[in-house]
Design a protein around this nucleic acid. Structure first.
Length: 604
RNA sequence: GCCCAUAUGGCUCAGGGGUAGAGCACUUCCUUGGUAAGGAAGAGGUCGUGAGUUCAAGUCUCACUAUGGGCUCCA
């Protein structure tokens, strides 16, 4: 047996460790390297090694589960002492000491009954075994440390070198919010030093793109302790960026037959009772009272749109009617989940409601999918679609849910659009298609959503007059493309690392006049740009030329334009093109044409 | 909400039981410069908030608020 073999993989893709394989295994060997299978074994064993170290440092520790996850592993355990970030180093040190003892990792088996007996005093192990159906359980042993585990593991501790414990966290036992909270330590592990280093520096890079960091650097947005958590403020640069995004999308909506509407921020609680929000979503709503009447601050915009629809009589000839609103909504998110712009308590949705007949659902859903695709392409985003089905808290008949869910599936399938299913993830009033973007660090964020709803039209008695002069109930499609401006701009910021495309950049051009006498021409150019809707600034304060160029460059603007004797005399501009990392000269007219052309790229 | 950690001028951070430091930014003056930091002077903080321990708290303890990493949930 080769020194480097740490396991085998069979035809079904199952990993068999050397402890289980015996001498004459015919499955494909797994070498010690950074392959997926190899890393899975290494990480699992590293988790055990960590548990062994914790057991030595904290003799009262009890262990729950320690699985392999993306890039690493974790172990959940219960311990009397508080464990903080500083303790990670101590645990790592102990792990390295244990490796030096050159323990082999041995496996033996026993019946479940024997195992229950063996771990009789360990309620966490009892809980683990409750979840296992098998009659025979395996135990892995290294030195004095034993743990119930199905493997796979490396043959001996000497295979573990390149790991790092990354964070301490709390985790509910079994992910159940009402259950006890255990301590969880996360770590990463690789087969060689370089991969570990590369992974850690990748995390550093990701930190540099963090929208909270860039947002502060570029003065896009802020939060304020005195105002409250999860309530974003938009600074001038951020507001300019957001306005540009709103404008692009506004045109795109008009082109697709949407009409703008606007509803109030707060509505009487009875309306929320009728809709079902009060019962199904009440704990997330902010309630208040006016003249002894209960009101609710809107967490969604649907009710306003329904009222607008109902205000005038509608004919089948009017359908589909597509109302859209940049609707400000408030939702009480738990304090621990707030996260920069990605998770806030007040946000603005690019929300729309399409009122249509049942026959029109498929066409409308597809049109929305096309809209989503156009937006994602504009920003170069990868995305996936997921159909979410009926949740536990829901209103309406099962058959209606079936019908609506099937409608969504049909729409995607008839156009060969791939999707996955999120069982029980729907809104309380209907199933939905969620659009998930992958961000710079590989995290997935739900942004756009398309929801088919038979419930609210019924609850609010929404009607239109059909061809046969009979009043009928329209279907509502709720949809958002970006999801919210807050979240989407957060993701955009990380996606571009602050280097926004020309049509979005808060400041698109910075003019740097060399001397005082060149300022006038620079200001004249700035005015010309403003007329075309292009944001420009002139850096003519009392600093050296180099300093001003440096300051301008640090703003991450697409173009820094230098204006000197030559430019003033010839009516030209000297451009530093940050995106293409070039310098060149253009005439004033060529410059204008170039910028206006680039502005057009932001069209959907 | 729960677990762990953090909170020092606008920003990034150092310090640490005996009355606050640096760099950048800001203000003023000098410099008028052809592509990433010219020079000088100056102003700015009751060290997140509130209690407690102490002769003495920014430094130790507790609570709260906010932020960060997770659990759970979600646009």
């Amino acid at each position: 047996m080769s020194e480097n073999i740490i396991g085998y993989i069979d035809h079904q893709g199952n990993i068999i460790d050397t402890q289980s394989a015996g001498e004459n295994c015919t499955a494909t060997p797994i070498e010690y390297d950074n392959s997926e299978a190899s890393l899975e074994i290494i990480r699992h064993s590293t988790a055990h090694l960590m548990a062994q170290a914790i057991a030595e440092l904290y003799p009262n520790a009890q262990f729950f589960v320690g699985p392999v996850v993306d890039e690493g592993f974790y172990y959940d355990f219960r311990v009397d002492e508080q464990i903080g970030e500083n303790d990670l180093k101590t645990i790592e040190k102990k792990m390295k000491e244990l490796i030096k003892k050159k323990y082999k990792i041995e496996k033996y088996e026993m019946s479940k009954a024997e195992a229950l007996e063996k771990f009789a005093n360990d309620d966490l192990k009892q809980k683990v075994m409750e979840r296992i159906a098998d009659d025979t359980l395996s135990i892995y042993k290294q030195g004095d440390f034993e743990d119930l585990c199905r493997g796979p593991h490396v043959p001996a501790l000497r295979f573990l070198h390149h790991f790092k414990l990354t964070r301490v966290a709390g985790a509910y036992l079994g992910g159940d919010e009402t259950a006890e909270m255990l301590t969880r330590i996360y770590g990463v592990a690789f087969a060689d030093k370089e991969s570990l280093k590369a992974h850690l520096s990748m995390l550093e890079e990701a930190k540099k793109r963090d929208h909270r960091k860039i947002g502060a650097q570029m003065e896009l947005f802020m939060f304020n302790e005195e105002a409250g958590a999860g309530l974003p403020f938009w600074m001038p640069k951020g507001a300019k960026l957001r306005y540009k995004l709103e404008s692009i999308l506004h045109k795109a909506h008009l082109m697709r037959g949407y009409e703008p509407v606007r509803g109030p921020e707060i509505l009487k609680a009875d309306l929320w009772r009728t809709s079902g929000h009060y019962a199904c979503y009440g704990e997330n709503m902010y309630l208040t009272s006016i003249d002894e009447q209960e009101y609710g601050i809107k967490p969604m915009n649907c009710l306003g749109h329904i009222q607008v629809f109902k205000q005038t009589q509608k004919s089948y000839r009017d359908l589909p009617i597509r109302y859209y609103e940049y609707g400000v909504v408030h939702r009480h998110e738990k304090s621990g989940v707030l996260h920069g712009l990605l998770r806030v308590r007040e946000f603005t949705q690019d929300d729309a409601h399409i009122f249509c007949t049942q026959e029109q659902i498929a066409t409308e859903v597809l049109q929305v999918v096309e809209f989503v695709d156009a937006v994602m392409k504009l920003f170069g985003f990868e995305y996936t679609m997921e159909i979410a089905t009926k949740p536990q808290k829901a209103i309406g008949e099962d058959e209606v849910w079936e019908l609506a869910t099937q409608g969504l599936k049909d729409a995607l399938e008839s156009n060969q659009l791939p999707y996955t299913i999120d069982e029980g993830g729907g809104a309380f009033y209907g199933p939905k298609i969620d659009i998930k973007i992958t961000d710079a660090i590989g995290r997935k964020w739900q942004c756009g959503t398309i929801q088919v709803d038979f419930q609210l039209p019924q609850r609010f008695e929404v009607e239109y007059v059909a061809e046969d002069n009979i009043r009928k109930r329209p279907v509502m499609i709720h949809r958002a493309i970006l999801g919210s401006f807050e979240r989407f701009i957060g993701i955009l910021t990380e996606h571009y690392a602050g280097e926004f495309p020309f049509f979005l950049a808060p400041t698109q051009v910075i003019f740097v006049p060399i001397g005082e006498s060149h300022s006038e021409y620079a200001h004249m150019l700035k005015k010309m740009l403003l007329k075309e809707g292009i944001d420009a600034e002139v850096y003519d304060k009392n600093d050296s030329l180099n300093k001003r160029i440096r300051t301008a460059e640090k703003q991450r603007v697409p173009y820094v334009v230098i204006i000197g004797e030559e430019e003033v005399a010839n009516k030209t501009v000297a451009i530093r093109d940050r995106r293409n990392k070039e310098q060149y000269n253009l005439t004033q007219d060529e410059f204008m044409v170039k910028l206006i052309t680039q502005l057009q790229e932001g069209t959907i």
